[in-house]
């Protein structure tokens, strides 16, 4: 019950945010000089269609009837959005945007999630070590590595990895999701190829998230180490390992805010990661859509990325409530 009362406002804020982004992309598309719908409409007229036919065709392809007042179009857009209809893509001539996004989503979600998990495991353990050994040279180096990877731009990381592991050492392939000569399916060579092609993107996502986990864990552990119950544990003569278990359990709590932030970074960075590694995920779809002036697809991809981040925030908050009894009370 308490969980619910805490969660509802968050849900409401999330919904408002999704609505705001939807509204923003709608009006953005309409602020563009010469909307794609108008251009297509003129083309149909020129190719000899009657105005009614052209109008019907445009509204079936672009998802909005371009001669209605803006507010009516906006209402129609929101209504279709609520029914999961994002209109039709222009560059994929008439394929529903939702289909394009559904095909692309796994290639973003799985590598990003794998990177997130790796970054979490490595980052939090190194963060704890960096906190305990903060006066030693190794502790200093560890936290420096955290700040470094937290600061380094995504595409620099991706380009350096691609350059080193592909061009220079020729260890790993990149470009697309697998070797194009193989037949997709559950067969050995194809699976191996998919995994090989995924290593560099996953590594980029992992290094991207690593810094935030390490730095947050470090400062969290430092503050828990100063707590009275740790001093008490020390005085009771508990083994360092037991003491460390107390510390890590209490220090892990602030990590949930990092979880939400990381998801944002990773999905936002997917545009660059997928661009460098030529990976057909959501970020690449968004980038291609902008290049092709495919506005329905562009707004759809942008909306989906935002919705994913909003959902991750809500999930992080829910987990926090489940794990920390103090929030529930």
């Amino acid at each position: 019950m308490r969980t619910l009362t805490r969660l509802l406002p968050k849900l409401a804020v999330g919904l408002v945010m999704i609505w705001a982004v939807a509204t923003f992309t709608f009006f953005l598309v309409h602020a563009l000089p010469g909307s794609p719908g108008d251009a297509a409409y003129e083309n149909y007229i020129l190719s000899g269609m009657s105005p009614e036919q052209a109008q019907a065709k445009v509204s079936s392809i672009y998802g909005f009837t371009s001669h209605d007042p803006l507010l009516v179009q906006y209402r129609g857009y929101l209504w279709r959005l609520l029914h999961g209809d994002l209109g039709q893509s222009i560059s994929y001539s008439g394929v529903p945007v939702t289909h394009v996004l559904r095909a692309a989503a796994p290639w973003t979600i799985f590598p990003a999630l794998a990177g997130l998990v790796i970054a979490f495991l490595v980052g939090t353990s190194f963060g704890a070590v960096a906190a305990v050994k903060r006066s030693s040279r190794w502790g200093g180096l560890l936290s420096m590595s955290g700040s470094f990877f937290a600061g380094i731009p995504v595409f620099v990381l991706a380009l350096v990895l691609a350059f080193l592991f592909h061009t220079e050492w020729n260890l790993l392939p990149y470009g697309d999701t697998s070797d194009v000569t193989l037949t997709p399916g559950f067969n050995g060579p194809y699976v191996v190829s998919v995994v090989q092609h995924a290593i560099l993107p996953v590594a980029t996502y992992a290094l991207l998230g690593y810094g935030a986990w390490l730095l947050t864990m470090k400062s969290s552990v430092i503050s828990v180490l100063g707590d009275d119950f740790i001093l008490a544990a020390e005085l009771r003569g508990l083994r360092p390992r037991t003491r460390m278990r107390y510390v890590s359990r209490n220090a892990i709590l602030p990590m949930f805010t990092v979880f939400a932030l990381s998801i944002g970074y990773l999905l936002g960075g997917s545009v660059l990661v997928e661009n460098v590694f030529d990976y057909p995920g959501l970020g690449n779809v968004l980038f291609q859509a902008i290049g092709a002036r495919d506005y329905p697809l562009m707004s759809g991809a942008f909306l989906l990325i935002t919705v994913a981040i909003v959902l991750a925030n809500i999930v992080a908050d829910l987990l926090y409530t489940v794990i920390d009894p103090r929030v529930r009370r």
């Binding site: 804020v13 945010m17 705001a20 982004v21 992309t25 953005l28 602020a31 563009l32 932030l261 944002g264 999905l267 936002g268 960075g269 545009v271 660059l272 970020g283 968004l286 980038f287 902008i290 002036r293 506005y295 562009m298 707004s299 991809a301 942008f302 990325i305 935002t306 981040i309 909003v310 925030n313």
Partner: peptide, 22 residues
């Protein structure tokens, strides 16, 4: 702070490249 959350949540780079179209 709701406004700040909003700015923090919307992914920066995708927003900027969408903005670059207009």
């Amino acid at each position: 702070m709701r406004l700040t959350d909003f700015v923090l949540t919307i992914p920066g780079l995708p927003l900027l490249i969408v903005l670059s179209t207009i």
